[in-house]
Design a protein around this nucleic acid. Sequence first.
DNA 1: CGGCTGATTGAATCAGATCAACTGCTGTGG
DNA 2: CCACAGCAGTTGATCTGATTCAATCAGCCG
Lengths: 223, 223
Amino acid sequence: MRNAIDKISFFSGLEETHLEALARISSSSHFEKNEIICSEGQEAGGLYAVADGLVRIFKASLNGKEQILHVFGPGEVFAEVALFKGAALPATAQALEPSEIVFIPKREFVELIREAPDLALSMLALLSLRLRSFVSKIEELSLKEVPARFAQHVLLLQAAQGGRDILLDLPKGQLAALLGTIPETLSRILKKFSESNLLDIQGQSIRILNQAALEAVALGKKL
Amino acid sequence: MRNAIDKISFFSGLEETHLEALARISSSSHFEKNEIICSEGQEAGGLYAVADGLVRIFKASLNGKEQILHVFGPGEVFAEVALFKGAALPATAQALEPSEIVFIPKREFVELIREAPDLALSMLALLSLRLRSFVSKIEELSLKEVPARFAQHVLLLQAAQGGRDILLDLPKGQLAALLGTIPETLSRILKKFSESNLLDIQGQSIRILNQAALEAVALGKKL
DNA sequence: CGGCTGATTGAATCAGATCAACTGCTGTGG
DNA sequence: CCACAGCAGTTGATCTGATTCAATCAGCCG
């Protein structure tokens, strides 16, 4: 499994001996598109990581609406919350594409953390990042309307991809679930952005036409 | 400061030598009601803990609406997210009552974590708990309506306090902000719960009249 | 007794969800 | 190669939960 472990950038700063330890205890498996990797409520026996593919972490309500919490690509780890306090997973993980998923059993991993302060600090940093991203999400859901959330998302993509041309990383239906809304609403909002000449939207690709206005909308200005 | 450190239940499992180290490096100060302890965006120089009093962590929007993320009482720590990744605080902390707040400088605390694996694991457990509470909040904001959120909150209070009689821990306006709504809406909903004979509400004290129905509403049933 | 803050109530409005229909694309099989 | 099934996305009409604005009320403290 050394091969797969090397793909997990989260581990890349670790010492060679720890990487080999991880490789020894981890296993890797394949998931088809839409396959469930682990479900809410289930006991998580360890840490998961994406070696290849794309995974979404989401919650579903009784009446079918979904809220995506994270989308993870190659190199990212998930289900870390179940390692340290309570084993039950708070949400469900599902492959959005055919994916290679590495699994690291809890017992051995926690053991490793005790011995490697650097790994412990990495985990602390990781959890802090997750916390920050959740704070943003709560803020957006509670204090901002859908256009502002979408504008914010575009700006984040821009920061990650650079330039004025942006490629959506998700199909629009999934993007709606990530923003805490439904496809119909997102579709109407995309139209408004187009009509106001803030964005040029062609399928999955977006060009920013009016950066300043986009940033204003992200902060709460109407339109 | 040993006095104050002993009040922080989060530290209670630590070894004597570490407690003394914490006592040496920490300081304590007083905050009046409504006083800001630390603000969003500001650099947090360390970890805060409530020795006495009540503190809310919240975000505010431009147009004045507020979303409370946490309310912390004696023994609880906050601003831990700024210790491990990025120093800027994601939200603001404010005293809801006259409070004694302990402060532990980041440098020394992180140093201590490196030497004390148990403390590191405690911090990991703490961050995991926070993550879980945020997942719940996101789920509630996105997938549930206000009555369900309130019912859920009452059930949590019941779990903490026991029995059918419950005392609200916050004024109603603050409770509204915690549930992601506004006082007017909460007030209307309280009335509905009363009229449906689910709850008997007298100011801050609540008696549960129909447990089963309350649980049903928490899960999404209408009324 | 004022005056302040928190809480309640009412009427109007609005953002977003729901329901339903339609478009367009892609891949599959006859 | 065309036809059709199936899914993602779009559009329209309607409904509703929640916010907004405004007014009133209750309790508390000086």
